[in-house]
């Protein structure tokens, strides 16, 4: 019906919006109203993604394992009695589709996705914050405030997140890739939730085999002793927030990573943080995907 001249007139009246980042089809500007996930419309994903791609996201909305945030009662966490990492929450289930998205971001290097993925992480951050509120037994006063958990924690001086940090890459891989995928996600969280970002970890040696090519045992062995605290950044952090930290009994740190598979990487990171910390630590993690 609308060919030639009419089409161009329509283009003037209804200007072309930016295409979907994933599939590069034009986006229709209608807001999504999905009743099953009430918080979805607040993330405003429809600015970057087309409707179909939004539907393809496999949100991890049912948490059955309270420790690692899996949607099944996981045997791993029941075996483990004590670990350095306190709790983990993830944004999406790691299925084939999500694997492709992550591949595009991490290995092909499409950095535009970092902002989108960072936004997708926000619900998981809220969940971890809620866990922290529960840990301190503050649920009552939080409920009265009618605020999101992270926003509420931010105003409290005695609790709340002290820093957000990311799992580091080795220098060699960093040069290969040009950016640290976890660090980019962490910086998005840092700006959205007003938690300061510090690079508290560093990598001591370069593993020759990619983690995604290894089995469980090999991973656990490999991850140990791979990370250490970045002392310089610790000093900077403690100097800059000296007054706030001096009131604390424990420090709360959030680690960000892209995928949680066995948890060995994040556990090793948490151990490394515990080793250098002057105060007792609560280390929680947020990952984009949970396999």
């Amino acid at each position: 019906m609308f060919n030639g001249g009419w089409r161009s007139l329509l283009n003037v009246l209804l200007p072309y919006s930016t295409p979907c980042i994933i599939c590069s089809t034009p986006i229709s500007a209608h807001p999504i109203n999905d009743n099953s996930l009430p918080w979805l419309s607040q993330l405003k994903l429809e600015k970057d993604l087309c409707r179909q791609c939004i539907h393809e996201i496999s949100w991890l909305d049912k948490v059955l394992c309270r420790r690692c945030g899996r949607s099944i009662r996981c045997p791993d966490c029941q075996h483990k009695l004590q670990s350095a990492l306190w709790v983990n929450r993830s944004a999406v289930r790691y299925n084939e589709q999500m694997k492709q998205w992550l591949h595009r971001y991490k290995f092909q290097g499409d950095e535009r996705l970092s902002i989108l993925f960072g936004k997708m992480l926000l619900p998981a951050v809220e969940q971890v914050s809620l866990q922290l509120i529960n840990r301190y037994g503050l649920e009552e006063s939080w409920r009265k405030s009618r605020k999101l958990p992270t926003a509420w924690l931010q105003h409290s001086t005695t609790y709340g997140w002290d820093a957000v940090t990311a799992v580091p890459l080795s220098v060699q891989r960093l040069q290969e890739r040009g950016f640290n995928q976890a660090e980019r996600l962490a910086s998005v969280i840092s700006t959205h939730c007003f938690i300061p970002y510090y690079n508290l970890l560093s990598r001591t040696h370069h593993s020759l085999v990619r983690h995604s090519h290894q089995g469980r045992q090999a991973r656990v062995m490999d991850s140990k002793e791979q990370y250490s605290g970045n002392i310089k950044q610790w000093h900077q952090w403690l100097n800059e927030n000296g007054t706030a930290i001096s009131k604390r009994e424990t420090l709360n740190i959030l680690i960000v990573d892209d995928v949680y598979t066995t948890g060995s990487t994040l556990n090793a990171c948490a151990e490394a943080l515990l080793r250098v910390s002057p105060l007792p630590l609560v280390v929680a993690s947020v990952t984009w995907a949970r396999s």
Binding site: E111, S114, R177, G178, F179
Partner: peptide, 15 residues
Amino acid sequence: LIRAVGKCRYCGEHC
């Protein structure tokens, strides 16, 4: 072309 969000670790600029 797309401007990278953060600074590139290879050249230290916004690639």
